[in-house]
Design a protein around this nucleic acid. Sequence first.
DNA 1: CTTGGAATGTCAACAAGGCTGACATAACAT
DNA 2: ATGTTATGTCAGCCTTGTTGACATTCCAAG
Lengths: 168, 168
Amino acid sequence: MVQRGPNPGSGENLLFLTDEQLRKGIEAMFFAYRGFTADPDRILDEYGYGRAHHRALHFINRSHGTTVNNLLTTLGVTKQSLNRVLRGLIEDGLVEARVGRTDRRERNLFLTDKGQELERKLAEAQRVRMRAAYRAAGPQAVAGFRQVLEAMMDDDIRQTYLSLKDGR
Amino acid sequence: MVQRGPNPGSGENLLFLTDEQLRKGIEAMFFAYRGFTADPDRILDEYGYGRAHHRALHFINRSHGTTVNNLLTTLGVTKQSLNRVLRGLIEDGLVEARVGRTDRRERNLFLTDKGQELERKLAEAQRVRMRAAYRAAGPQAVAGFRQVLEAMMDDDIRQTYLSLKDGR
DNA sequence: CTTGGAATGTCAACAAGGCTGACATAACAT
DNA sequence: ATGTTATGTCAGCCTTGTTGACATTCCAAG
């Protein structure tokens, strides 16, 4: 019952975890995810790409030189599905696939300048919204936001997420 | 340096809102949403349904007797897309579409017993995960979670969300 | 050196679930 | 009587996921 937080509504009533409260959280996730993807989606549309391209660009940018297999497991799709997306990005000169140095079977993936340009554009659009949401909610809310999201992930995915967490 | 919260990292440093921090939030959303949908997806698979069916069942259950048009705007899809899903659910006897009493052009949508059964199963699977995440993160985190999600929605969607917020 | 297996790429086929456009019907509203 | 609204439906297209099959390349173990 003891509640020190500055946050009205954050108190002991949430400990009940009624189905009603859980349902609100579920709907919030659904609607927020729509907002989360809306801005990049508009940009992607202009370029004739989809969300799958965005995800690929994001994680290649995130981990320069990552392999196809790494990307596969991070994204949670099949190689065929990823390959189609990747092929498009390579053909359009946004992504470069270099033969691995140590293991020449592998392909190390990099963004070209053109690829970085689009990635930055997409990321910035998404960050604008996140930034606004973070500012509106405040730092304590942001900490809670991330705690809950983290707890919501599958265990193995959480490992992937954490290993990327403070990466280069 | 002052840190009162139970949470190292939840303090004033988050006010900086670096691109790095925003990126972590973005990735958390991506991975968490996968977890969020994973359990219902497995159940839906057994029934030969997809996420679209889940969403329809959820919001029909949410607002008994809602019209097709209402559902359309809530879900943010076209009537053709919704109709395909709805047709399947009606054929399989999970949803009933009754001609409107006041306006006979409208169809009021209801879950049958069978529909309610599946909806409960899906909702419970999703709630189990939410409940676990909420418990792990704590009530204050949950409040923050919802604040950020709410701030992340499109303005018009937020209206829809809020109008649904405290039930009919 | 040969062979097994791993990493990757590619082809084909399919399905879900979005979309647009066009058209039909019924019912309300003026 | 006419126009508008709500709904349904058909057709066609796209993205993005799936499985299965098969080829290539190349490392590594024997």
